[in-house]
Design a protein around this nucleic acid. Structure first.
Length: 256
DNA sequence: ATGGCCTGCAACGCAGGA
């Protein structure tokens, strides 16, 4: 079972890339973030033509998440429990033998911003939910745009980024707390080295110079981590014409 | 060099991203 995550930075603009990539890679599940459109405008037919069922939690202009799957989605959730939030950043569903929780974690903007506080509160709320969710759904995949580079090896220039949003100590601690529930960062099950990124700034030719961050992640509960045959980043779409600033991240699970 | 670029919405610049 191949599962992927991609922040597309506007599904309206990126639909041709998503279609092309699905056709090339044929994942069983693709989780999208920053679709930036409403449920009414979601292009479900385009995905149906490629053999994917789709569910979506969208809003105008900002945020928005979606799940594309070959299997019928079940047990759908569209928000963190007990967390009033008009921003659409959460979509969970049982797909085949696994439960996939698609997240678009708040960016935080800067350490002195209200949005940073919101980001930390949001991550704390997620942290509080995980024990119950793991109990309900032992085969759990928590994936998406976490907007956190967990370690310095996930940052092209740690000195330049030190203390900034996406790498600050409280954000990294929040990320480590998620792993404390037994979730594994799938990429690090298979790759120890640095220089592997999922996002490159549009400015300053970041992609061409491989100056990026690894902020998109696929976390696996213990039973799935044991069955993780591969985890990788596909940088190719970032090099296409008019790309998203993120590129897809993937895992291959060997399910019984 | 504390900005560069991209998107959406609306209005001819802003908010937001990361």
């Amino acid at each position: 079972m191949k599962i992927a995550s991609w922040n597309v930075n506007s599904l309206r603009v990126r639909l041709p890339h998503v279609q092309q990539w699905l056709d090339n890679v044929r994942p069983d599940v693709l989780a999208l973030q920053e679709i930036k459109l409403t449920d009414a405008d979601f292009p479900a037919n385009a995905f149906a033509d490629l053999g994917y069922q789709a569910i979506c939690s969208g809003q105008p202009t900002y945020n928005g998440v979606a799940l594309l799957s070959r299997d019928e989605p079940d047990d759908i959730v569209t928000a963190l429990p007990d967390f009033k939030d008009p921003q659409r950043r959460v979509l969970g569903a049982k797909l085949g033998g696994v439960y996939v929780l698609d997240l678009y974690v708040p960016n935080g903007q800067s350490l002195d911003s209200d949005k940073y506080r919101y980001k930390l509160d949001w991550l704390a709320q997620l942290d509080g939910w995980l024990p119950a969710l793991l109990k309900q759904q032992p085969n759990l995949v928590v994936l998406g745009d976490f907007n956190v580079a967990p370690e310095d090896r996930d940052v092209h220039d740690p000195a330049a980024w030190e203390g900034q949003v996406l790498v600050s100590a409280p954000e990294r601690e929040a990320f480590r707390r998620l792993l404390g529930h037994g979730l594994k960062d799938s990429f690090r099950l298979h790759q120890e080295g640095g220089g592997h990124y999922s996002w490159w700034d549009y400015r300053s030719a970041g992609y061409q110079r491989n100056q990026g961050l690894r902020i998109d992640h696929i976390l696996l509960s213990a039973p799935l981590a044991e069955r993780c045959a591969a985890a990788w980043i596909d940088p190719e779409p970032r090099g296409w014409e008019r790309p998203s600033d993120h590129t897809p991240v993937l895992v291959e699970l060997t399910l019984p």
